[in-house]
Design a protein around this nucleic acid. Structure first.
Length: 494
DNA sequence: AAAAAAC
């Protein structure tokens, strides 16, 4: 079992011996890389950097936590270096590389990486995304940048406001492209792509190569080289995955218990709903765990504050929706907890990809209630193996300070806490009861489910194989397919 | 079912 790092590299023997200075990257870039503490390229970096440097288009499939951002940022910076200049004139700094991401946080993170890797070069970069004041972004664009990182909506907004011209873009990166399609960004992507010069290099990164992604690629990429470092839909071997059977009403208590028992200093807890995330954050806080929620209904400044505080270690539990599922890189995150199992099995892979990054080990701990069996089966089908299932007895919750959880809040505790506690008086009684003192009659049906020897529900798997994609192409699929059909049409660009 | 993203 000497797995993790050793296994990952030995499967990539051809590239195992590489160091960063074998790519022919400039000294300014290598300096920034080594200052960041990186000495050895990851498999995707080893494969992608030479290809991107050669000018070829790329279809990239990489697991999260594989160093994907550097794999395109470093060669892009290298290719732009000859065009860098030190002029103060904005006209001398046209946008030459555009990087698109599905979420604002991811854009911000990619931008931070690009900034780091280019800091010893004259290249300038900035990031634009929604939810924040446009003016500082416009001002940065007016001063001129060679590299722009953006979410699609705000980018188009800037184009419309004439604060941005994309006519000089030579390199385009579509990061998490499958996610962007999921989120309905295809029309925006098409608009953006039609604003770009046809003569350009395009890099498309996607967790999966679905038919939609392949169609997008065949329309907008030219003889792309495919780079795949790990089978997509697989999960890192250095992440231990455990599923805990719990009653739905015990979930909050279970999260608190897991955090305490495992002494987790930092954990992301994923919920399926924004309301659920806010609620759980409040409950955890009441349990003496420093927690905050991050989701799309919070203001952008709250989102950024939450993420920054979490990265600084000031917050123990970041309770998130899938806004945080993809791409976010938090150093040394020891665990993620799924409060809910995601509806999309693919999102499970992304969520747990937040831990065990860069060869570190991590735990992915999922709570599964009786009504989430289908999601569990879907996940096991996707990752092609059964998950280890344990039963979690949720003990009578105690606060961190040793007080009983249902004790009245200490004097001086924030008003919202008391309010939250009162709001949830009913559910609190349920969550604080252990499975031992639950009335037996009520829990009978659930227990029957849990007591059954665990199987990854072969019937469900078989059903799906026999009848592939039964009633799937409803509302959301239709316009996507139609639009994708349109992609094949000869483009008329001005 | 739910989430994300422009104003």
């Amino acid at each position: 079992m000497s797995d993790s790092v050793a296994t990952n590299t030995s499967t990539e023997e051809a590239t195992a011996a590489l160091t960063f200075d074998q790519f022919g990257l400039s000294a300014d870039i290598l300096k920034a890389v080594s200052e960041s503490g990186y000495t050895k390229p990851t498999p995707i970096q080893a494969k992608a950097i030479p290809v991107v440097l050669s000018g070829s288009d790329v279809m990239g499939a990489a697991q999260t936590g594989t160093g994907k951002t550097a794999s395109f940022s470093l060669p892009i910076i290298q290719r732009l270096l000859p065009m860098a200049n030190t002029s103060a004139s904005p006209a001398r700094h046209p946008v030459r590389a555009l990087m698109l991401t599905p979420t604002r946080e991811l854009a911000d993170q990619v931008a931070a990486n690009v900034q780091t890797y280019s800091k010893h070069t004259p290249l300038r970069s900035t990031v634009v995304f929604g939810g924040v004041d446009m003016n500082p972004q416009s001002e940065a664009l007016r001063r001129g940048v060679e590299i722009l990182i953006a979410t699609p909506g705000r980018l188009l907004d800037h184009v419309q406001q004439k604060t941005l011209n994309l006519g000089q873009v030579q390199m385009l990166v579509l990061d998490e492209a499958d996610r962007m399609l999921d989120m309905g960004f295809l029309p925006d992507l098409q608009r953006i792509l039609n604003l770009l010069p046809k003569e350009r290099q395009t890099l498309l990164f996607s967790a999966t190569f679905s038919p939609e992604i392949k169609k997008l690629a065949s329309t907008y990429l030219r003889n792309p080289q495919t780079i795949e470092v790990a089978r997509s839909n697989s999960t890192a071997t250095n992440v231990r995955q455990i599923v805990y059977e719990v009653h739905e009403s015990d979930k909050s208590g279970a999260v608190a218990q897991i955090i305490r028992e495992r002494e987790l200093k930092q954990v992301i807890v994923f919920c399926n709903s924004k309301i659920g995330a806010s609620r759980l954050a409040r409950v955890l806080e009441r349990d003496g765990i420093v927690a905050t929620a991050i989701h799309g209904d919070r203001s952008q400044s709250e989102r950024m504050q939450a993420l920054d505080a979490f990265k600084r270690g000031e917050i123990e539990a970041l309770v998130a929706t899938d806004v945080a599922a993809r791409g976010l890189d938090i150093a040394e995150l020891p665990a993620v907890i799924n409060f809910d199992l995601p509806f999309n099995a693919e999102d499970y892979v992304h969520r747990i990809g937040r831990t065990g990054r860069a060869g570190a080990s991590g735990d992915a701990l999922s709570l599964c209630s009786a009504n989430e069996r289908k999601q569990l089966a879907d996940i096991e089908k996707l990752i092609k193996r059964p998950l280890e299932v344990q039963t979690l007895q949720v003990a009578t919750p105690m606060r961190r300070d040793g007080a009983r959880r249902d004790e009245r809040p200490a004097r001086g505790e924030r008003a919202e806490h008391r309010h939250g506690a009162r709001d949830e008086a009913g559910s609190r009684r349920r969550t604080s009861s252990s499975s031992y003192d639950r009335p037996r009659g009520r829990q009978q049906p659930i227990d029957e489910f849990f007591l059954k020897p665990y199987e990854p529900s072969p019937s469900a798997m078989k059903r799906q194989e026999e009848a592939p994609e039964p009633e799937r192409k409803s509302a959301s699929k239709q316009p996507l397919a139609a639009l994708l059909g349109g992609l094949g049409m000869p483009r008329k660009t001005s």
